[in-house]
Design a protein around this nucleic acid. Sequence first.
DNA 1: CCAATAGTGTCTGTAAGACAATATGGG
DNA 2: CCCATATTGTCTTACAGACACTATTGG
Lengths: 256, 256
Amino acid sequence: MTRSEEEAAYLAGYDLRAFPPVGVAVDLAVLTVRAGRLAVLLVRRDGHPERGKWATPGGFLNPDESADEAAVRETREETGLDIDPWHIEQLRTYSRPDRDPRGPSGKHPDGRIISIAYVVFAPEGREPAAGSDAADARWWAVDDIDLSATSGEGPELAFDHAAIIADAVERCRSKLEYTTLAATFIDEPFTLGDLRRVYEAVWGVRLHHSNFARKVTSSPGFLLPKDFGKGNQVLYRRGPARSMNPPLPRPDRDEE
Amino acid sequence: MTRSEEEAAYLAGYDLRAFPPVGVAVDLAVLTVRAGRLAVLLVRRDGHPERGKWATPGGFLNPDESADEAAVRETREETGLDIDPWHIEQLRTYSRPDRDPRGPSGKHPDGRIISIAYVVFAPEGREPAAGSDAADARWWAVDDIDLSATSGEGPELAFDHAAIIADAVERCRSKLEYTTLAATFIDEPFTLGDLRRVYEAVWGVRLHHSNFARKVTSSPGFLLPKDFGKGNQVLYRRGPARSMNPPLPRPDRDEE
DNA sequence: CCAATAGTGTCTGTAAGACAATATGGG
DNA sequence: CCCATATTGTCTTACAGACACTATTGG
């Protein structure tokens, strides 16, 4: 028996059913800037479990696709939004056995449902359409969500989605420092003021417009100057650069 | 029937076996600095599949533990190294259906094995002990590994572990810029030169010792000055700060 | 004594933060 | 006409990069 025959025999006899049953889902933290505030897309669950609670859109992997592919597919299906110039990246995987009651409950006390979470950056002004198993879908300003679940304000969140949203917001805020992703939150063409308002909304700060303009216009490849709008207003498009160094310094958050 | 009774009935009937079979593993990219170079711990596989190839240590989740807990357990079991002051963090999840031949092959063509990968920072000078299902275990300098699998040099890697290692190295290099994690690669107490050599090894650069000392000693909470060694040599310990801002700028890589 | 390394000090260029000045568009 | 906003420009301060100098250790 050659080694490859050995290996083929091993694989033919290999039974994945020896493992406890696991469901693999993707969850999408779709972020946008809306009315000057960072917002996340939530859907109200129409079916069990956690019916009536608010959740990030998502769904289970199809057998032939990777989590990356499933995330793109679910973004289209669950949000009804077109995903053309948007940004999507893997956030982290949540795997606590008790994170979803369909895991340890039900017919399989040793089962679980794990979620591979993604962050999606969506441009301003898109209105979501409720997906298949969602009773309702809307943007929630992240500051209106009680992520520590202490005050009882804001939407009641399903599963461990408060943690997913908190991690996604933190990822978003830090990504704006050293990447050019802020521009994915707005449509082209845009002014420097439009771009600055993205930073102000996401970071919850006020930036000096003059210093901001100097920084982003001198960052190589961040912006392509397009043309002139009304008056001499300068309109820009996204440039080819994906990272920024030195980064754009994030000030301490403004108190209100 | 109340809503919670409804939910309980739903969960009692829920069958996770409706999903395709999935195995969930953790893979560990254990990094260290060794002989002035960044190195990763690899084990030679003793069993099928991919027998004889080099792989990152890892294993499957136990039914009652999260991936974070499994990663800590596997680091102890598979490497034989003590994990006390070390750093471990989730890297990303790899889920392509064909990434492991035990997935689509075998009795379940729609099955798969996904891997939740972690990065571990280990201090200098530790020698690994081969784990249970590993024929051999050793450190490999990451520059000696052909991560694009083009030249045929270096160890032959199993599964998609070249991608895991590449992602881990990139994560490590960027983390050193804005965190104080470089100090987890060395034992206490250490000199500024010890710490600088970590940066030089990981980034593949030469740093000005004077500018480096000024930067790290003035970064609040990075270092606790301990005492004096032989002569007036100053010895330090890790301070409480976990992040550094402004970050320590990373120069372009030195050509050799 | 010499070489290598550690620690401290100084100078310079670049960039960030604060603010002023001008121009444009809308009510 | 007044006010809000956009763009450009100036000044000051902070810090990174380069380099000089001294002290100590080990051969």
